[in-house]
Write a protein that binds this DNA or RNA. Structure first.
Lengths: 252, 252
DNA sequence: CGTTGTCTTGATTACGCTCAACTCAGGTGG
DNA sequence: CCACCTGAGTTGAGCGTAATCAAGACAACG
C-alpha cells in the first residue's frame, strides 16, 4: 500500500526517529487493512480481546452502555491512533468501538506487541509513551467532567480536538470538520443532547465557536482555550530526551 | 530490606510468575526506601518528571487544582502501586501527589524502566498490563463521574476500594480502614463535602454502608455492588494466557 | 476548658435534565 | 416538481439533584 504515507509511522515519528527496521516492523502492523463503514462496530464489550487496531483513515469512538440506557463515549480516535491499547491486560473487551466515518482499519494480534517488545527498545518506549499519552488525555477529560460547567466542557473538548488534529495535520486552520453529532458530543461530555444544543447557542452568541453542520469555526483560539481553562502541557508531551538516550544505549 | 515481603513483587506476581533474576530486577526498584509523613507532597505539577515511585506502605493520592480553587483527586494509591507511570511520556509532572498516611516510598528513575524493557520481556508485558489496568480503573471512574448519581458514585468508589484492598490482602473482611476524609472523598467523586455527608447518611439509613471515623462497614457487599451497578470485569484482569505464552517464547 | 478540624443539618439557589412541541434540511417516492 | 418522511437540532416549561451558604454538633487535642 502507501509507503512512508503510513499514518502510524508518522504518529510514531512524532516521538522518535525510526530506523528502517523499525519502520518495517510498524508497517507490518498495517498489513491487514480492511475498509469499514460509518456506524459499523469494530467490537463489543465482552468479545475476546486478542488484537489491536490501527486506524488508517476515518474517525472512531469507544463507548460503554449503562444500565439505564445512557451511553458514555470514552475516547475519540483519529487517523494514526491505535485502538484497544488499554485492553492489552484483559481477556475480554471492556468497551465497544464504533466507526464515526467510513474508514480503514488494520488489525494486529496482541502477540505482535510482544514482537515489538522483543525487537525494538525505542518502539517499546514509544508504545509506552503513547499509552501514557492516551491516559493523560483521559485524565484531563476526567477533571473536566468532574468539575467544570457545560460550557467549559464543550470549550475544552473542542479545543482539544483542534490541537489533536493539528498534531498530525500542522496546517489546519481555525475551521475544520468535526463529524460528531450533538448527541455524540453529549455522550462524550456527560450532558444531554438538548443541553449541548443550548450550550452551542450560548457559545456562538459569545462568538467563541460557530458550528454549521459538521464544520466548526473557532474565531479566536486563545479565547476558547481561556474559556476552557485549557492547560496544554498534557498534549505537548516530550519524550525525546529519554528516547534519544535510549536509542544511543541500544546502539551501543 | 524485607525479602519476598516486597509489595511490588507480590503485585507483579499477581500477573505472572517471576524468575529469580526478575525478582532481583524488581527488588532493585525498591532500593531507595524513604519514610514519608502523612500529608507530605511527593511532587508537584510542573516539577521535572524523571522518576517513578513504588509505594511500600501507606496510602497516597494524585490530584490537580483548578483555577477556581476546586481540587480533583485523580487516583488513590495503595501499597504495592507504582506512582507516576502515566508521566513516563512527559518531561514535567502533570499531577501533584500527596501522602494520605505516613508511609514508605522508593524512587527509581525513568531510565530504570528502560532496563526492564531491555532485560525482561515478561516484566515489560506486566508493566504494560499494569498501566492498562490503571487506565481501566480510570475509565470506570470517568463513566461513574459522568453519568451516575451521587449515591452511585459513592457506592461505586467504596466497593472498588474494597476490591482493590482484597486483591493484595485476600482475607480482608467487610469492615476495613478507609483513611480518606469526606472532603477527600468529595474531591475524588466531584461532589461537595456537604453532599458526601448527606449521601453517607442516606446510605447508612438504607444499611448499605456504615462509616465510623475512618472505618467502613459494608454489611451486604452484593447489595452495594448492585447499587453501584458495579461491573467488576475491569478489575478481574486476565493477562496470564498472554504472558505465559510470552514466557515460553522468551525461554526458547 | 477552649480551640481546632471534621462532620451534620437546614434553607436557598442554580445548573442541567426531562418532556414535548416545533423548525429545518435532505432524501424519497409519487 | 411537489408532498411527505426522517433525523438532527432548537426552544420552552417545569423539575430535581446537588451546590452554596451558614449555623451548629461533635470529637480530639492541647
Amino acid at each position: 500500500m502507501g509507503q512512508e504515507k503510513s499514518c502510524i509511522i508518522s504518529h510514531f515519528s512524532h516521538y522518535c526517529s525510526l530506523s528502517e527496521d523499525e519502520k518495517k516492523l510498524l508497517m507490518s502492523l498495517e498489513e491487514n487493512a480492511t475498509a469499514i463503514k460509518s456506524g459499523a462496530l469494530l467490537w463489543e464489550v465482552g468479545a475476546p480481546a486478542n488484537e489491536f487496531c490501527t486506524l488508517k483513515s476515518g474517525w472512531a469512538y469507544s463507548y460503554r452502555h449503562l444500565e439505564n440506557g445512557d451511553r458514555q463515549i470514552l475516547e475519540v480516535f483519529l487517523p494514526g491512533d491505535i485502538i484497544g491499547l488499554r485492553e492489552f491486560a484483559f481477556a475480554e473487551r471492556l468497551e465497544n468501538v464504533r466507526m464515526i466515518d467510513d474508514g480503514v482499519v488494520c488489525h494486529f494480534p496482541h502477540r505482535r506487541m510482544l514482537d515489538i517488545f522483543r525487537q525494538s527498545l525505542p518502539l517499546t518506549s514509544v508504545m509506552f509513551a503513547i499509552s501514557s499519552r492516551y491516559q493523560a488525555l483521559m485524565t484531563e477529560r476526567l477533571v473536566t467532567l468532574a468539575r467544570r460547567s457545560a460550557r467549559q466542557k464543550m470549550a475544552h473538548f473542542l479545543y482539544e480536538m483542534y490541537l489533536r488534529l493539528r498534531q498530525t495535520n500542522p496546517d489546519i486552520s481555525n475551521q475544520f470538520r468535526l463529524p460528531l453529532s450533538q448527541e455524540q458530543l453529549a455522550d462524550v461530555l456527560g450532558l444531554s443532547p438538548v443541553h449541548v444544543s443550548r450550550t452551542f447557542t450560548v457559545l456562538s452568541e459569545e462568538e467563541l465557536v460557530f458550528r454549521d453542520r459538521h464544520y466548526l469555526t473557532i474565531p479566536d483560539l486563545q479565547a476558547l482555550a481561556n474559556e476552557a481553562e485549557f492547560d496544554d502541557c498534557y498534549l505537548t508531551d516530550n519524550v525525546r530526551p529519554l528516547l534519544d538516550s535510549c536509542e544511543q544505549k541500544a546502539a551501543c
